[in-house]
Amino acid sequence: MADVPVNAPEHCPGTTSEQAGKSASCQGCPNQKLCASGATKAPDPAIAEIGQKLSTVKHKILVLSGKGGVGKSTFSAHLAHALASDSSKEVALLDVDICGPSIPRIMGLEGEQVHQSGSGWSPVYVEDNLAVMSVGFLLSSPDDAVIWRGPKKNGMIKQFLRDVDWGELDYLIIDTPPGTSDEHLSVVQYLSSTHVDGAVIITTPQEVSLQDVRKEIRFCQKVTLPIIGVVENMSGFVCPKCKNTSLIFPPTSGGAEQMCTDLNLPLLGKVPLDPRIARSCDEGKSFLNEIPDSPAAEVYQRIVQSKC
């Protein structure tokens, strides 16, 4: 898998390609001389180390979204809760949103700290079979700002994948920040020596969200990351009392369903907007455990049963 620079042209061959810095698409690229010199072609030894470290993890799933605020971390957290509801499964949730780590709050783990052991960093456990790791555990306060450039972010992601004592896992869910930038390229590169099931892409029904999601889909195709499917979040508001559905964010271009049809991608499900989900996240509780018979919880369970 070729490592594609953040500011690469549309048809970049990747820094590890024999054509790096030499192909027609490299003309005018700010990285051309560096790529052509071969300085970027030496493989990072951490890639092999991470492959060995994660060899005991059966399934690895990335959760992506092109746009912020679409409920990606909420989905990641509840996907982990849903998988861990089977007590025979070992599940872990890795938060690589370095600048906006919301997973500790959503999982009810604010104030927890990471401990060092002989085998590496020990993750924080929500349940006996559900582990969590986030940069939020390394901050002195939830209000601390992480003001890091790309290399330091990439170094932290490398540590999370290589130095955390994950143990034997059935599922590792990786929650990523919005966009297609340093963190995403780093995760894909560092996981290149191990099998990744693919990405679940989160969107909302509006065209402004779908626009960014199409970019995310293009990113996955460019770095050869399989796409498990798309989830449309906030897909209508279900009144907790009367159960009627209202379209708070009406789709103007057919929503995720039409996009998936156009791009030949699976639509995994449409999660309705339920204010109780936000309340559960604020309180650090599992919405699936709190209100298991809600329409949103039923959609989560169908997604897990059909694809995981």
Rank of each mutant, 00 (worst) to 15 (best):
P178C: 04
S186G: 01
G198W: 11
E216I: 00
L225H: 10
V238M: 06
N233D: 09
I217S: 08
D175W: 03
V187P: 04
V238Q: 06
I228F: 07
C239D: 15
W166L: 08
L225R: 02
P205T: 11
S235M: 04
T176C: 09
T203I: 06
G229L: 06
S235E: 03
G167S: 06
P251M: 11
E216V: 09
T204G: 04
T252G: 15
T176P: 02
D163R: 00
P240V: 02
V223F: 00
L191H: 06
G179A: 03
L191I: 12
K241R: 14
Q189F: 01
Q221H: 11
D175I: 05
H195P: 08
Y171E: 10
D182V: 03
I228P: 08
T194M: 13
S209K: 03
T224L: 11
D163Q: 00
I248R: 09
Q211M: 14
T203R: 02
T194E: 14
Q206W: 13
E183M: 04
Q159F: 00
Y171N: 01
G179E: 01
S186N: 01
V208P: 01
S253N: 13
L210Y: 09
P177W: 06
G179I: 07
I174Y: 00
A256M: 10
V164E: 00
P250M: 13
P240C: 03
G167Q: 06
F219T: 10
T203E: 11
Q211E: 10
G198D: 13
E183Y: 00
P251H: 14
S209H: 07
T176M: 15
G167H: 05
L247D: 15
V164W: 00
S186C: 03
H184W: 04
E232C: 06
H195E: 15
I174G: 05
D163W: 00
Q189W: 03
V230N: 01
G254K: 11
V238C: 14
L247C: 05
C220H: 05
V238T: 15
V238I: 12
F237G: 02
F237E: 07
V223I: 13
S209I: 08
S192H: 07
G229N: 02
L161G: 05
P205L: 12
D197F: 12
Q159T: 01
Y190W: 02
H184Q: 09
P178T: 05
V196L: 12
V230T: 07
R214E: 09
E168R: 15
V213D: 01
T194H: 09
T176L: 13
I174S: 00
I173E: 03
P205Q: 14
T203S: 09
R218I: 07
S209G: 02
D165G: 01
T180K: 07
L172A: 08
